[in-house]
Amino acid sequence: MSDRYDELARLGVATVYEASGRQGLVDEELVRLVPGSAAAGPARIAVCGPADNRAVHEVAARTQPGDVVVLTMDSPVPVALVGDLLATQLKTRGAAGVLVNGSVRDADALRELGLPVWARWIRVRGATKAHRGAVDVPVVVGGTVIHPGDAVVLDGDGAVVVAADRLDAVLAASRRREATEAEARRRYLAGALSYDLYGYRTADAQPA
Results as ranks from 00 to 15, higher is better:
Met73Gly: 06
Glu18Pro: 01
Leu113Cys: 10
Ala205Asp: 11
Gly149His: 09
Gly126Cys: 02
Arg93Gln: 14
Val124Ile: 09
Val161Arg: 07
Val79Pro: 01
Asp27Arg: 09
Asp108Ile: 05
Arg201Asn: 13
Leu113Gln: 15
Ala205Tyr: 08
Ala19Gly: 11
Tyr17Gln: 06
Thr180Trp: 01
Ala9Arg: 11
Glu181Ser: 02
Tyr200Trp: 13
Ala61Cys: 03
Asn53Asp: 15
Pro78Leu: 01
Ala159Cys: 10
Ser2Tyr: 06
Ala192Asn: 03
Arg176Ala: 15
Asp3Met: 03
Tyr17Pro: 03
Arg185Ser: 05
Ala172Leu: 13
Ala134Cys: 01
Ala164Thr: 09
Val141Pro: 04
Ala60Arg: 06
Asp196Pro: 00
Asp84Gly: 00
Arg132Trp: 12
Thr88Glu: 13
Arg185His: 09
Arg22Asn: 12
Gly21Tyr: 09
Thr88Asn: 05
Val140Gln: 11
Arg176Met: 05
Val152Ala: 09
Arg44His: 07
Tyr5Asn: 09
Arg111Tyr: 04
Val153Glu: 02
Ser103Glu: 04
Pro65Tyr: 03
Gly24Phe: 00
Val137Asp: 10
Ala151Gln: 04
Leu154Asn: 15
Thr72Asp: 07
Gly102Gln: 07
Arg44Cys: 13
Gly41Ala: 06
Ala19His: 03
Val117Lys: 14
Pro148Met: 07
Glu178His: 13
Val56His: 10
Arg185Glu: 15
Thr63Phe: 04
Val100Met: 05
Ala40Leu: 00
Ala60Pro: 02
Gln206Cys: 02
Val170Gln: 02
Gln23Leu: 09
Val141Ile: 14
Val135Pro: 12
Arg186Ser: 11
Gly49Ile: 01
Pro138Glu: 06
Ala179Ile: 02
Cys48Ser: 08
Ala51His: 06
Val153Thr: 05
Gly12Pro: 00
Tyr5Gln: 14
Ile45Asp: 08
Ala43Gln: 11
Thr92Lys: 14
Gly158Ser: 04
Asp150Gly: 01
Glu18Ile: 14
Val59Lys: 03
Arg111His: 04
Ala208Asn: 10
Asp3Ser: 10
Val68Tyr: 12
Arg176Tyr: 05
Pro78Asn: 04
Thr180Val: 00
Val13Pro: 05
Gln64Val: 06
Ala134Met: 11
Asp155Cys: 12
Lys91Trp: 06
Arg176Phe: 01
Pro65His: 04
Met1Gln: 13
Ile122Ala: 08
Arg62Thr: 00
Tyr5Ser: 05
Asp196Leu: 11
Val170Tyr: 07
Ala164Gln: 13
Trp118Leu: 06
Val160Met: 10
Lys129Tyr: 05
Ala55Glu: 00
Asp6Val: 12
Val56Glu: 10
Pro42Val: 08
Leu115Lys: 07
Ala55Pro: 08
Thr144Lys: 02
Gly143Asp: 14
Arg166Pro: 04
Asp52Ala: 05
Val13Ala: 03
Ala190Tyr: 04
Ile122Val: 14
Arg132Asp: 11
Val16Glu: 00
Ala61Tyr: 01
Leu81Asn: 08
Ser75Cys: 01
Leu193Trp: 02
Leu11Val: 09
Ala205Glu: 15
Glu18Asp: 15
Ala169His: 03
Ala172Met: 11
Ala60Ser: 09
Leu167Met: 13
Glu178Cys: 06
Ala184Gly: 02
Thr180Arg: 08
Gly199Tyr: 07
Asn53Tyr: 07
Ala127Arg: 07
Val69Lys: 03
Arg44Asn: 14
Pro138Gln: 08
